[in-house]
Amino acid sequence: MKLIAVSAGLSTPSSTRLLADRLTESARQELTARGHLVSTEVIELRGLAGDVANHLVTGFPPPRLAAAIDAVTGADGLVVVTPVFAASYSGLFKSFFDVIDPDALTGQPVLVAATGGTARHSLVLEHAMRPLFAHLRAVVVPTAVYAASEDWGSGGDEYTDGLPARIRRAGGELAALMAARPPRAEPEDDVGALERQLADLRFD
């Protein structure tokens, strides 16, 4: 199984990348416990910003961006994490998914997450990120994860689970969706497709 994380963090080190790593590892551990062999990769959009802008203008992805798009659309599951800018996902995050074919993520399990300075921005998960991936017809896991600055190292309280517990729950939900998803059909080669088309043309 291929598990891909997309991180739109702009700094180095980045709390967005850290959250992406922890969510990916949580899902990987759960899938491994279920007996699946899992490969993981984190795509950092920071290094692809220029390529994304060029693709939006020209309509042709440079090689690095094309490889990133192929990895995302070919994954068995996605973890997507953005910092909050102006009460929504970042422009770079949205631009990356704008250059992906609108049908390419249909049925794909996706875990959405975001980072921000305060908990006031946590609704970005529900009013921006979940609708975006619903529009792309992906299957978004029930638990979305928001990490404010004060969440790192917090164990939560009697009313709210701490960040580690939310990460475990969301990772488990993503793993369950990935494990339940039917295997993807291998694309048919050109010769096989031609043979089927000719067979359809046979006359009685």
Rank of each mutant, 00 (worst) to 15 (best):
44 E>T: 05
116 G>P: 08
117 G>Q: 05
97 F>K: 01
41 E>K: 14
39 S>I: 07
22 R>A: 00
190 D>H: 14
73 T>D: 02
141 V>G: 05
142 P>V: 01
28 R>C: 02
176 A>W: 00
96 F>M: 08
86 A>V: 14
202 R>F: 15
7 S>Q: 03
95 S>N: 14
51 D>R: 09
77 G>T: 03
49 A>T: 07
89 Y>R: 11
56 L>E: 12
85 F>W: 15
55 H>Q: 15
115 T>V: 09
169 R>H: 04
27 A>M: 04
117 G>S: 06
9 G>T: 13
85 F>Q: 01
53 A>S: 13
47 G>L: 01
26 S>D: 05
143 T>K: 01
100 I>P: 10
105 L>S: 03
13 P>V: 06
112 V>A: 11
72 V>S: 06
145 V>P: 00
136 L>Q: 02
27 A>W: 00
11 S>N: 10
192 G>S: 12
183 P>E: 14
143 T>D: 01
158 E>T: 12
175 A>P: 01
121 H>V: 02
150 E>K: 14
119 A>V: 10
201 L>D: 15
203 F>N: 04
179 A>K: 10
134 A>D: 11
105 L>E: 04
28 R>N: 00
190 D>C: 07
46 R>G: 08
174 L>M: 13
7 S>E: 08
180 A>H: 06
19 L>D: 00
115 T>M: 08
171 G>E: 03
171 G>M: 03
45 L>E: 07
199 A>W: 03
92 L>R: 10
84 V>N: 06
54 N>W: 05
60 F>V: 14
71 A>L: 11
147 A>D: 15
62 P>N: 13
203 F>Q: 12
140 V>A: 00
133 F>T: 02
41 E>C: 14
52 V>D: 03
151 D>G: 02
112 V>M: 02
74 G>D: 13
115 T>N: 05
201 L>T: 05
157 D>Y: 04
202 R>W: 14
31 L>Q: 07
22 R>Y: 01
128 A>M: 05
30 E>N: 06
70 D>N: 05
3 L>M: 09
60 F>R: 14
6 V>P: 09
63 P>H: 08
123 L>T: 11
75 A>Q: 04
100 I>W: 09
127 H>C: 03
90 S>F: 00
50 G>K: 12
